[in-house]
């Protein structure tokens, strides 16, 4: 068996000016780097995709490697809402309330066919995609998606977190988008 080396990967340093005892760069780059590697997800797991998420958090796939060790079961402290599973229409207002309780900046990851589009449940009782009630940043397809796919979705979120403007909530587009959903 190959020996495991305990090599720690440190986040890549942003561009900047470096000299003896100082390093100057853009603030948003530093904040983006810090945010990206410390996302606290709120798992909203309602069915089988939630089981895949449990595998994603487990030792084998280990989402903690991406700085998301700490799950937040309080929406107030969460950065990322991970919706995993079928959302019945009766669950819709609950999901929306959870989203509304989250503090900015906040992101939403829609995991699996059901959360993204209603999936196989094209029926009177199931919400046909969570984007009908809350805005979604990244969709992960699959029924259910494998843990690798969920990690890929989280990494796409990381990319957004790193590269978005620090105060995207102040932008006109963001406000218009929330308005479209009747939030705030």
């Amino acid at each position: 068996m190959e020996t495991v080396t305990n090599k720690i990967n440190v986040g890549e340093k942003p561009e900047g000016h470096e000299g003896h005892g100082f390093f100057a760069t853009r603030l948003d780059k530093v904040v983006g780097l810090a945010r990206k590697n410390s996302i606290w997800p709120l798992p909203f797991a309602t069915s089988c995709c939630g089981i895949e998420f449990m595998a994603t958090m487990g030792a084998h796939y280990d989402l903690a490697r991406f700085g998301s060790e700490r799950l937040s079961f309080s929406p107030r402290q969460a950065d990322l809402l991970m919706v995993m599973g079928t959302i019945a229409k009766k669950m819709g207002p609950v999901l929306r309330q959870v989203y509304e309780q989250m503090a900015e900046p906040r992101w939403v990851l829609s995991v699996g066919a059901c959360a993204s589009s209603g999936g196989i449940f094209d029926t009177y009782s199931v919400l046909q995609g969570i984007d009908r009630i809350i805005p979604v940043d990244v969709y992960v397809p699959g029924c259910p998606p494998r843990p690798e796919q969920i990690i890929d979705g989280v990494m796409k979120i990381q990319y957004l977190v790193e590269n978005e403007s620090l105060r995207r909530r102040d932008s006109a587009e963001y406000k218009a988008m929330l308005n479209k959903y009747g939030i705030e």
């Binding site: 819709g92 094209d122 009177y124 009782s125 046909q128």
Partner: peptide, 26 residues
């Protein structure tokens, strides 16, 4: 008891289609 309070139909009656009628992409 099980459906959303503001539902207007009685969904298991045969005159109502099973599928969600709000979808436009199908």
């Amino acid at each position: 008891i099980l459906n959303v309070e503001d539902m207007l139909i009685f969904p298991m009656r045969k005159e109502y289609p099973l599928e969600d009628q709000t979808r436009e992409d199908k």
